[in-house]
Design a protein around this nucleic acid. Structure first.
Lengths: 140, 140
DNA sequence: ACACTTATTGAAAATGATTTTCATTAACGA
DNA sequence: TCGTTAATGAAAATCATTTTCAATAAGTGT
């Protein structure tokens, strides 16, 4: 569904709509887990065989620029991307299947202010990420 | 000071003490900001010219294994390391000079439990990192 | 102090990820 | 339909990291 929205976003920002981009967008937008460029490449090539890995990199770059996707930092590596939530969201990752859930965590203001006072830093951003097991992986 | 402790830790764990390792440890242990392997290499080579970049990688690997250093994740890249704090600590990074401050943030239990309830996830770990300006950079 | 075992080293090569270059193709506004 | 120019994929270039390997030196036992 929202694949169309992403394509529209690209178009509105002066980018052309190509089969390569359609394939990449479709894969990334629908994925519940973070995907690396190569994973996107492998999956998207099932839709559009002529796709090149370079184009995957370039498309991900543009999607990130438009805040449609975001990079996911993990202990094993930081090259994976996931569809970005709306507004300021944090990630919760399943350590077993990679499934990503979003949550809002603006309760951090209190903590942030306390740290600012203690350290003298002027705090402007925060990163919060939780790890665990999703409902499925927890029961199996 | 604590450079000696790190070297002792290495020794206790069966690793030999070499000039290469001494140089790397000295640089990393004393740094207030996260350093990339190449930065460590450049700086440590002023102490020990024959040092090889490969040895830097290998030494960082061992220091991380002993939890003496930890990898720092940043928007620009995730290949830098900083001396690890004691116990469970979070990082606060100065976006201007890179200076790192540590803080404890175990006030997260409440948030964590609330998210666990909402999402059904069983949460086992969290990452929290703050960004801002340190006292120095704030005033200049 | 000496010799011996074996971890450690640096250089070079190999690998892996990402970016650049470039000639060809195709999107899309006129 | 045409023309401009962004987008493409292949290959080469770059950058970070790991592996291989022969030479060296740490540290244990003498």
């Amino acid at each position: 569904m929202s694949t169309e929205l992403w394509l529209a976003q690209l178009h509105e920002n002066g980018y052309r709509l190509t089969d390569a981009r359609r394939a990449v967008v479709e894969i990334v937008e629908r994925s519940a887990r973070a995907l690396t460029p190569v994973e996107v490449y492998d999956m998207a090539r099932r839709k559009y065989r002529a796709l090149g890995l370079v184009t995957v990199y370039r498309t991900l770059e543009k999607l990130e620029e438009l805040h449609l996707i975001q990079r996911v930092h993990q202990p094993m590596g930081c090259q994976a991307f996931i569809s970005a939530g709306e507004g300021h969201q944090h990630l919760l990752l399943c350590q077993n299947c990679g499934q990503v859930a979003f949550f809002e965590g603006d309760d951090l203001d209190v903590l942030t202010k306390s740290i600012a006072k203690k350290t003298g830093y002027q705090i402007s951003e925060h990163w919060l990420q939780l790890f665990g097991l999703c409902v499925n992986c927890r029961t199996n």
